[in-house]
Design a protein around this nucleic acid. Sequence first.
DNA 1: TTGATTTGTTCATTTTCTGAACTTAGTGTC
DNA 2: GACACTAAGTTCAGAAAATGAACAAATCAA
Lengths: 380, 380
Amino acid sequence: MNALLTSSQRQLVRVISESGPLSRTEMANLLGLSKAAMSGIARELIDLGVLHETETVYGQGRPSVRLDLHPECAFFVGISLLEDPAPMILSDLNGKIIARQAMPLSRDPQVIAQAITEGLPRLLEAHPQAKEKLSGIGVALSGFVDETQSNCVQSTLLGWQDVPLAKIIRECSGVETFIENDAKAVAVSEKLFGSAREIQSFSVVSLGDGIGCAHFIDGKLYRGNHGGAGEIAHCTIEPGGSPCRCGKRGCLDTVSSMKAIKEVSRAEGLECTSLSEIEHEASTGNAAAIRILHRAGSALGLAIANLIQMNDPGMILITHVEGSFDGLFGTVVNQAIETNVLPRYAGQTPIRVKRVDGDVWARGAASIAAHNFLIGPNSN
Amino acid sequence: MNALLTSSQRQLVRVISESGPLSRTEMANLLGLSKAAMSGIARELIDLGVLHETETVYGQGRPSVRLDLHPECAFFVGISLLEDPAPMILSDLNGKIIARQAMPLSRDPQVIAQAITEGLPRLLEAHPQAKEKLSGIGVALSGFVDETQSNCVQSTLLGWQDVPLAKIIRECSGVETFIENDAKAVAVSEKLFGSAREIQSFSVVSLGDGIGCAHFIDGKLYRGNHGGAGEIAHCTIEPGGSPCRCGKRGCLDTVSSMKAIKEVSRAEGLECTSLSEIEHEASTGNAAAIRILHRAGSALGLAIANLIQMNDPGMILITHVEGSFDGLFGTVVNQAIETNVLPRYAGQTPIRVKRVDGDVWARGAASIAAHNFLIGPNSN
DNA sequence: TTGATTTGTTCATTTTCTGAACTTAGTGTC
DNA sequence: GACACTAAGTTCAGAAAATGAACAAATCAA
């Protein structure tokens, strides 16, 4: 099932992946191909089991038959190295999670590869066809990943420097493997499976202990010249502010990350260990809690507003790990975005919020493998 | 000469435009084509007069012959509507200015079209072959231009709203015409003719009475979802700062644009009408001048640093109209960039500075027409 | 039932690319 | 200077991919 698709086949798969089920004629028009060519390519993909006919649409003339990706034409395993135990899921081509389990996290790549290899049979146990049609493994981690999606250039969390993790897992498990940064993996997942399917340019801002960010530009994940695109966490947001672990001062990370919020709370004498608790304190009128959330929310909103000004994305997706986003913090973020965006564009950029858990990261990881199956590695 | 090139021909033209003269074999490898296919396509383009053989490179085996774009295979007219009188130039495919003149500026699109139509014969007078091979007209203006490069969506300077300028000029002059925003035109010009030929992702920050910005991302001009990418001027840089004409407060525009610098100088009682004079005052120790330049420079530097953090471009090109960039202002800008970029990436992003005059804008305008000749309108 | 209408298929033809053999124009060695 | 060696570029038959036009199929509308 690793069969490489021809470039026309991939174009077709891509357009369906973006727009959902389409008739042959619609696709021919979208791709600028003749009906004759479309007919042939569609036939090939149906024979390969990648596409299948879905509903029939009646209008004037002969009804059209919509083609869609066959969700069970390929399966993917996704693993998130963001928590311990590490979630490990099996997903189909719709991003639906078919099976899940967990594996112990390690800092030793070899041990990780071993754990994955041992976990695979159990994950696939009850799904014989997934076993047969397993297309690849995706791994999401916190850190920098090179553009081949094979090497982890640097990860503070895992203590890595130039680790060829994909190769190690591939050799150990015998399955094609790709790795990706966590925020970028979620962005790909949203593009393939989620709310960004039809949006060509959007950004994901992922809020957790740290702050991550990824950009899709003109339908492609944009990594930047040195792989550093999306380093919103170290945008200076409070010039001359608190020192950051990166070496400079006033980074967004020092103000708006969950870690920073909790640290500041502790320093201010609040007995809170989670965002929800701080939110609760704020709702009861605790001035310190209100101040902290205001400061963090304004900073994040300002950074996002600047991102909108710079790049004019078609959507911003804010993912957050803890608590909810409908308290004071979320309100302030949204307000700050509105007040710092050109009035002309205010409200023009949809801001979506999504609470994520381990499954979302793992699904994001799986989507990296799915992307390689659908679009190909040279993201062309 | 408006003959549409086939898609393979355009690919080839594009790769030469990016990398300079290449041998057939090198291009075949770069494009993933067979030597046989390359041979044919190169022959076609040579026969069309688009390519020509240049130097011969000796090594082991048969020497290779580099092919390059024939600079005189097409000519372009570029007009800048940024000043009065408006510069109008004739350029070849290398961006070399062959002839120049000026025309009166107007706010009436019809009058502009008329002036261009009347100016054309004079511009082409001494260049019969340019007359024959004139491929298109490009117009640079301050304002928003839609993605078809035909309509000016909005221009404060010209007082326009949804003006189909390209169509008007095309119909009046009979020559294919494209329009573009000034900063974007300079970005295209740098990509085609200038220092960014081989850089896939870079940003231009243009410093004048206002502040403009344009991004090239993965080899393509990126316009953003609503055509608003690059609105760095209205990034909030001093939260709660001075009101901006856009309606919000503390925009970069209110601090670092030439207009703002001059206004603040006047308000502070400095008798200066140009940046050079303020620089001179600063160099003699005038505290107000030093303060103004520091504030403006830090703000611009911070904005550029944030841009680097967000997008990790391969180069930043700062263009400025007045004075020089090696005084206090430029120094502060560079310092502010350095201190606000992740230490890991500090110094990794080349910052280039270029002083521009009317010719540069007009050449940028011409490059829009050249881009449409070389790469095609659907910038694919 | 008939005609209009639009989808999708078939097939001969054209266009585009490939693989392999070949020609060409040099360098290096004895 | 003759000879092998090397790599660039060409040629040409054949494969692959796309097209255009004719046609078959499936419905609605009258």
